[in-house]
Design a protein around this nucleic acid. Structure first.
Lengths: 215, 215
DNA sequence: CGAATGCCGGGAAAATTTCACGACGTTGCA
DNA sequence: TGCAACGTCGTGAAATTTTCCCGGCATTCG
């Protein structure tokens, strides 16, 4: 409990889970949990008031999602250290999180040691990724499954987003001020680029890649 | 720690989460955690060897899912008391779990008191459901969203399952030994019955209703 | 200045979705 | 028993969507 302890902000909407983090981290000397938040807004607010050395945060939360919180915090403080700790064993989420400015990504299936290791690594300035996600990323390279964010042009990506949001072709056309025909063409092109044959596969690919969070 | 303590088996694939349960439950007199499992197989095996008074279990786990574990345990021991404790704030999952034989359904967003309350209720022979799920269930009645399991005939449900499993119309036709035309007709009828206009909406409805667990 | 790429949409063929209809067997009930 | 209701399967034809090929336009880059 010395003044030199690294201060930590815990963010998770499940109180029992925060209890778990806390229990694991307490056993480590040099770490001190100074605040907890149950949603994104609160996390952002607490970051500004507490200025912790490290944020450990879940991705799926009520209100604004984890990725967005990462962005906001990093915008407020370019040096913020944020470690994502989540259930999603999903390379797509990890890529998004790191790109948004997170410094680590650890899955909840990992043993406590992995979390502790990652906390120390991030505090030491390293980027920490749990082994299962490293493996996932390797697999996704090998399997050649196209990453939507990579192979699609901005316009195509936008259409995909709107499609997944349960809009009809006509609604999307109106939103984008183009002809329904163009949307249909893009829809077809998107499926082609992503290598899926049906809309059902398209949704499932989007789920795997973390493009679809809330149902 | 008296011999009369109620014995508990914890099942969750996230070790840090188990740590959280444990921490909360330890504070309650009369409860004793006697075993922990990280997946369904292990849970079933431990239930048989330990015969705990109560199982607290997550739904999403590697290998066999929580619902299936409930079924197996209840088949082995008709009086088994199983409390589902999960992140899914989803009435569909709750209905499935209770129908499979679970005695309670509590979401992880619930405060620790709710979990403790539910544990006691289930041990007392009651059915425990957390308030948010009660509310969800009420809403689903009001909104009139059709429950796939209710409005679909067995055959239709089977086709839906196969569609969601990323089969093409032809593959399904072959599997069921009917003409592709019939599958197409059923596909159309299913969307009609469930009140969705596109396959994308169909998948999302299936997700909400817990018909699609793994991606 | 080409060449490549993204964006927009028309036209037409191909495929699918939808609707109307009939047949058959089973169930349930009066 | 009879018969009405329902689930299942399939056909055919119309309506719609998907897909493919095309051209035009703007921007970027070497």
């Amino acid at each position: 409990m010395s003044a030199a302890d690294a201060t930590i902000l815990l963010v998770d909407d499940h109180s029992v889970v925060r209890e778990g983090y806390r229990s694991v981290l307490q056993k480590q000397p040099g770490l001190r949990v100074v605040a907890e938040a149950a949603d994104g807004e609160e996390a952002y607010r607490l970051y500004k008031s507490e200025a912790p050395d490290l944020v450990i945060m879940d991705l799926t939360m009520p209100g604004i999602g984890g990725i967005e919180v990462v962005r906001r915090i990093r915008q407020w403080d370019k040096t913020a250290r944020i470690l994502i700790f989540t259930m999603h064993e999903n390379a797509g989420f990890a890529v998004q999180a790191i790109r948004a400015g997170a410094r680590g990504y650890v899955t909840k299936t990992s043993p406590p040691e992995t979390l502790v290791r990652a906390v120390k690594d991030v505090l030491a300035g390293k980027i920490a990724i749990s082994p299962d996600i490293d493996h996932e990323l390797a697999l996704s390279r090998i399997s050649g499954e196209s990453s939507a964010a990579d192979v699609l042009t901005p316009r195509e990506f936008e259409v995909l987003r709107l499609l997944l949001a349960e809009n009809t072709t006509e609604e999307i056309a109106e939103t984008l001020h183009v002809s329904p025909k163009t949307v249909a063409n893009l829809h077809s092109l998107i499926k082609d680029k992503l290598g899926v044959g049906s809309d059902i596969e398209l949704v499932r690919l989007a789920l795997r890649q973390g493009l679809l969070t809330e149902v």
